[in-house]
Each structure stands twice: as C-alpha cells, then as structure tokens.
C-alpha cells in the first residue's frame, strides 16, 4: 500500500457529510434503478440474452494459497502461542 499519497487515512471520518447508511441507501436505490432499466431494455427488444464477446485475460495476482484472504473473523479467533 502506498504511504506517500495525500489521501486521508482510513480511520479519519469522511468529510463529505454522508453517513455509511446514507451512502448505502443511495447506492442500493441506484442499483435497483439500473436493474429495472436493464431488464426493461431487454424486454423491449424481446431478448433474454445479449451478445457474449471475447474472454478477458486475468490480470489480477493469482494466489497460491488463501492465507492472505483468511477471514478477519477467523484470524481474530486464532490463539497466539
């Protein structure tokens, strides 16, 4: 993780004035609006399936193990020896 950028730290409260609940409510309403729009567009053109194009090559790092992806809840319960 970069440490030399000017972004505020994650522990600092966002200054945009929105609570997490506000953000999630707005985002949820928006997702539902998009779902309605996409499904209506499909119905209007009378198709259930779109056009599937080429396969996208993965660029994400492949993990050999899941160690780094262990659930934080699980990790919290590991006894220290």
């Amino acid at each position: 993780m970069s440490s030399n950028r000017n972004f505020t730290s994650t522990s600092e409260r966002p200054k945009n004035g929105y609570s997490r609940d506000d953000v999630l409510r707005i985002a949820s309403d928006y997702k539902n609006m998009r779902i309605k729009l996409i499904s209506e567009a499909a119905k209007l053109c009378g198709k259930e399936v779109g056009e599937i194009g080429e396969v996208v090559s993965p660029r994400t790092k492949k993990k050999d193990s899941l160690a780094g992806f262990e659930s934080p809840l699980k990790r919290k319960n590991v006894k220290k020896t």
């Binding site: 996409i38 567009a41 194009g53 396969v55 993965p58």
Partner: peptide, 15 residues
C-alpha cells in the same frame, strides 16, 4: 470466466 458482453437492448455503459 469473464467475457466482454453486450446486454440486450440499448443500455449505456461497458459490460
């Protein structure tokens, strides 16, 4: 598997 995709109908955006 991830494919590029064009949804049915006229929908803005990249899918």
């Amino acid at each position: 598997t991830v494919n590029r995709y064009t949804p049915p109908g006229l929908v803005e955006g990249t899918h």
